[in-house]
Every structure is written in structure tokens, then in C-alpha cells.
């Protein structure tokens, strides 16, 4: 069947099997391998992408069902060479170890901050509770998201960091 899905602001039309899951459409058909593929059972959340701004587990959504929706993957977070504050936050606070859960964590963080720009630690932990960090690095993930909340302008944040790093 023919499907047209908007991914990171770009309409992508492809011929697919109806049973193709969104995670495999993104990774194998479009080559957007930033979206990771983990448990396959909607438990681990490494495959999280945004669907109309809300996090969903792309291993449990048909690519066909994504037609007519706006999908955002981790590749869509950076804008014009400027990292999203969430990405910058994961860099600043060392929010990743092996990196497997990171794309999903960052997208959920982006959705959380869009709705609630100043979340408490409890709210952050609740928001990411459907996603598993295999390194158990939750403390730094929470700190990374808090960093992003405190530095909402990515460009400014990056410049400030550069300033701090300069001797």
C-alpha cells in the first residue's frame, strides 16, 4: 500500500506492507536510525517518537496509522545546526552512558517541556516512567531535562556554555 507520513516536517511517500510498524518504517525505509528499536512489546520506550507532539511507542503503531500525523524523530530535534536545549542538556549533564534509550528520552523530554516548561523532578520522573535506561542512569537524565528547562533558548545556552568553557 502507499503511505504518506510527515516526518520532521517533510512529507515522505513510500510503498509499504500494511503490517510495517512505524519504527521499521523510520529505520529501514527512511534510514532514520536515530529511532532505536528495543523490546518490541511497548515496554522499554527506546522507540519513542513524537506523534503530533506527543510521545508514542513506534513499535506499537502501524506506519499506515501515522498517515496524516506529524512525526518527529530525534533527527528533527536539531534546528539549523543548533541543538535543542534538551540535547544540550544531555551533553552538559552527561545524560547518557550507552546511549540506547537517549533518543526516546530526549523526545519525551521535549514533549514534557513544551507542555510544562518548568517541571519538578517528580514530574520529570513520571514523564519518563514508560522508558527504561539500561544503564540505570536516571539521575543524570533527570538533571539533563532540568538543565534544558533552565536553559530554554538553545543558541543562548550553547553560547553561555562556550563562554564558561573558555579560559
Amino acid at each position: 500500500m502507499q503511505v504518506t507520513v510527515s516526518v520532521n516536517g517533510e512529507e515522505r511517500a513510500r510503498e509499504i506492507e500494511p503490517r510495517l510498524l512505524l519504527v521499521h518504517f523510520l529505520r529501514d525505509v527512511l534510514g532514520l536510525t536515530g529511532t532505536h528499536w528495543g523490546c518490541d512489546t511497548s515496554n522499554c520506550g527506546t522507540c519513542v517518537v513524537l506523534m503530533d507532539g506527543r510521545p508514542v511507542k513506534s513499535c506499537t503503531v502501524l506506519a499506515a496509522s501515522a498517515a496524516g500525523h506529524e512525526i518527529t524523530t530525534v533527527e528533527g530535534l536539531e534546528r539549523d545546526g543548533v541543538l535543542d536545549p534538551v540535547q544540550q542538556g544531555f551533553h552538559e549533564e552527561h545524560g547518557l552512558q550507552c546511549g540506547f534509550c537517549t533518543p526516546g528520552m530526549m523526545l519525551t523530554a521535549r514533549a514534557l517541556l513544551d507542555e510544562n516548561p518548568n517541571p519538578s523532578e517528580a514530574e520529570i520522573r513520571e514523564a519518563i516512567s514508560g522508558q527504561i535506561c539500561r544503564c540505570t542512569g536516571y539521575a543524570t537524565i533527570v538533571r539533563s531535562i532540568r538543565w534544558a528547562a533552565e536553559h530554554p533558548a538553545a543558541a543562548g545556552a550553547a553560547a553561555e556554555t562556550a563562554g564558561e568553557a573558555a579560559p
Binding site: 511497548s42 520506550g45 519513542v48 506523534m51 506527543r54 510521545p55 508514542v56 511507542k57 506499537t60 503503531v61 519525551t108 513520571e126 514523564a127 516512567s129 514508560g130 522508558q131
Partner: peptide, 9 residues
């Protein structure tokens, strides 16, 4: 019920 991401769908 499940988790916040599952509850979105």
C-alpha cells in the same frame, strides 16, 4: 494503567 507514553495511544 501502563505508563504515560502508552496512555497517549
Amino acid at each position: 494503567i501502563a505508563d504515560p507514553v502508552v496512555r497517549n495511544r
